[in-house]
C-alpha cells in the first residue's frame, strides 16, 4: 500500500498497472456486459484503483457497448464515485441531522486542521487523506460519527478525532 503510485520501483509499478488492468477485465467478465452491471463494475473498479481513471471508464464503456458520455454521466451522478485519486485514508464525516445537531462541524474542522486541508480541497497532496462529508451513515445513535475507511467511530469530539488520527499516523510510521 505504501506510496503505490509514485515512488515505487518500476518493476512493482508495472506489475501494479497490469494487475489492476487484469482485475478490471476479470470484474467485467464476472459481472457481465449489460448496462445493469455498470454500477457494480464501477464500484469494484474503484476498489481497485481507489478512483475511476478516465481511460478505464472509456474501456468499460467500450466493453459494455455504452457511450462514454453515459458512463461518465453515471460515474458523476453517484457520490460514491470519484474521478480523482483518493487518499489512503478516506475520512467520512457524517453530517446527517443527528450528527449535525450534536456538533459534527467542529469535528470536521478539527480533521481538516489536523491533516492540513483547507477550502474545497478534499485530498491531501501526499494522497494520504481524503476528507469528505456524508449525509448519513445510519449510526445516528452514536452521533457525531466519523468513518475512516470502513471503520466507524462514534461520539466524536474534536479532541477525540485528533487522537485517533495521531494514532493512525503512528501506526503508519511503525509500518514504514
Amino acid at each position: 500500500m505504501k506510496q503505490e503510485v509514485n515512488g515505487a520501483p518500476k518493476e512493482e509499478r508495472n506489475t501494479n498497472y497490469q494487475r489492476k488492468f487484469e482485475k478490471v477485465n476479470e470484474i467485467i467478465n464476472r459481472l457481465g456486459r449489460s448496462q445493469s452491471a455498470l454500477i457494480p463494475i464501477l464500484q469494484e473498479v474503484q476498489e481497485e484503483y481507489r478512483y475511476l481513471p478516465e481511460e478505464i471508464l472509456t474501456y468499460i464503456a467500450t466493453a459494455l457497448g455504452l457511450s462514454p458520455a453515459s458512463v461518465f454521466g453515471v460515474a458523476t451522478f453517484y457520490a460514491q464515485f470519484s474521478l480523482e485519486a483518493k487518499g489512503k485514508y478516506v475520512i467520512k464525516v457524517c453530517d446527517g441531522t443527528a450528527c449535525h445537531v450534536r456538533g459534527s462541524e467542529p469535528v470536521l474542522e478539527a480533521i481538516k486542521k489536523r491533516v492540513n486541508l483547507s477550502g474545497k480541497k478534499k485530498t491531501t497532496d501526499d494522497l494520504r487523506y481524503t476528507v469528505e462529508t456524508v449525509s448519513c451513515l445510519g449510526a445516528c445513535g452514536l452521533a457525531p460519527v466519523v468513518m475512516i475507511n470502513d471503520k466507524i467511530y462514534g461520539q466524536m469530539t474534536p479532541e477525540a478525532i485528533t487522537i485517533i488520527l495521531d494514532q493512525l499516523e503512528k501506526e503508519d510510521a511503525a509500518d514504514e
Binding site: E54, L57, T58, S67, P68, A69, V71, F72, T76, F77
Partner: peptide, 20 residues
Amino acid sequence: GIGVLDFSGRGSNTVVTPAF
C-alpha cells in the same frame, strides 16, 4: 443512436457535456 452528450454531475451542478 450515438449519445455524444449526457448529463454529468448532479443537482445544481448538473451540466450537459460530452464524456469527460
